[in-house]
Every structure is written in C-alpha cells, then in structure tokens.
Amino acid sequence: MSFRISAALTAALAATLLAPMPVAGQVRASELGTVGQTIDGTVIAIEYSRPKARDRDPLFGGVVHWGEHWTPGANWATTFEVNRDIHLNGHPVAAGKYSVWMVVQPDEWVVYLDPEARAFHTDPPDSTDAQIRFAVVPEERPFLETMTMWFPETSATGAILATQWGTTYVPMEITVEPSRPITLAAEAAEAYMGAYRLAWAIDPDEGEGDGDGPREAKFEVYYEDGSLMARVDPGPPWFRQLVLIEIADDWFNPGILDEDGQLYDVMAGLTLEFNVESGHAKGFDLRWITDEVIASAEREDSM
C-alpha cells in the first residue's frame, strides 16, 4: 500500500515538473514583424522576422554571402500574401501566400516567390516553374539597423514595397487590378455629355462656410482621355473636377484626380443617377449614401 502511495506521489510530482509551463514572452534576436497595405480592395500582408545588424559588416557579401538564396528576414521565411491577383515589378502574381527569397549578388539580385509559404530560412526551395522570378537592382540608402519592409509610396493603383537592411535598399513595384475602371467607351459617354444646371438640396459648404453659399452650379460633363469627366462651377473644392466612374447602367460614382490626372479617391458615398431617355440624359440626381437626394440637375443644352 505504501508503495502504491509512493508511486502515486512520484507520478504526481513528475507530472507537475514535466507539465508544460505557460508560454511566456521570449526575447528573439530577430523579432517577428508584420506590415500590410490595402490598395483599392487588394490586401497585401507581409510577415517576417527582423534581424539586426549588430555591428556586423558587411551585411551583404558577409553575413549574407554572395550567391546565397536569402529570405529577407530570419528564422521562418518571410511570407507575402495577397487576396487578389497583382503584378510585382511587372510580373503577374496570383492571389495567395508565398515565401520570399532573394539571390544576393554584388550588383543585380534575383527575387523569387515560392508558393510553399512555410519554409525555414536555411532551406530555400528548389527552382520550379511555379515560382515568380525577376531581377532587382539594390540601391544605397542611409543606414538602417533593423531589417525593415514597408510601403513608402502608395497610389490608387499600386505601391512601392521596400526592403532595407543596413544601407541596402530594394524597392519593388506592386500594381493592383482596379476594382472599377475609370474609362468609358466614347459611344457610351455620348449619352451623358453636355451642360446641366445643378441645384443643391443642401449646403455643399456646410461646416466650412456660413451656409449661404451658392445653391446652384453649372455642371458640365465631357469626355477626355477615355474617361467621362465633369466640371462644376461654382463648387466646393472637393467637387469641382471629377471623373465619373460607372458602377451600373446610368449610375456613376464621382472620383477625384490628382494634378497628374491619377485617381486618388472615389466618393463611393455619392452616386449620380442619370435619367436617360431615347439615348440621352435629361438630368440626374446626386444621392448620398443614405439614398437621399442632395442635388438634382437638368440638362441645359439642346441635346
């Protein structure tokens, strides 16, 4: 009996000692980092461990040998995930999750994405046709101690993904598929082109002016560079020059172009609903996201 008790106590003690302890924080030489960016509904997510230079020099051609297949990071391979198809430096990349590798050379590097996202940094994948490969030319930038990936530039159609460690900077250009084209066939545009008289049902300057701003404006719809455009005079600063983006038959969201003519915002909460009869628009309602009509327009010209 005493043996049984002793055995039970021993087993209990062993179980206590061997039981896994609760996971505690753990310092890593290369802590895990994430960075993400959304562009027009395309979500880009990167996960990577971030090595530090720690006075090691040179980093490339030293810590990372020339010719080495290096994952930009440490530990488990850096992953690159997108929810929609994109182009990376002009090369098509299907939606999915990839491990990222770079063949490091003194001048031109080769970047490749492998569809096997889970890989350890010491085990780069063999070359396969499923990989996306392209060359990049590193640049030199002011020193950065911790390897960093980020998006220094974004636009309505893409972003620059930058990777830097030490003074070595590698930019890659991401281009996304637009959720809606801003172009419209010339024949389709004809129905809407012309001059309209716009009457606001609200004060378009509310919150900025005294509420006594003009409640009527000239709204001119024209065609330029393949897009249906509109000019509003007078109009609040955010509503003077617009690109009309078709979302359904005779329905458009106004978009705003920057000085270079690039789309930088779509006012998805506003919809122009044209009233088209016999192939020509007679006018339109401008509706707020709640479907409330905040302005109406009637055609002024003789079309």
Binding site: A29, E47, K52, V64, W70, T71, A74, T122
Partner: peptide, 19 residues
C-alpha cells in the same frame, strides 16, 4: 548561414510556430 539574418539556430527555436 548560422548568422544569416540573425538566425536563431537552436532546435527548439527552429521548431517554434510563429504566431
């Protein structure tokens, strides 16, 4: 390669599952 990217080379660390 043990130093590459500041790798953490122990077997237990290699087996870690990234959160």
């Amino acid at each position: 390669m043990a130093e590459s990217g500041g790798s953490e080379g122990s077997a237990s660390r290699r087996g870690f599952v990234a959160l």
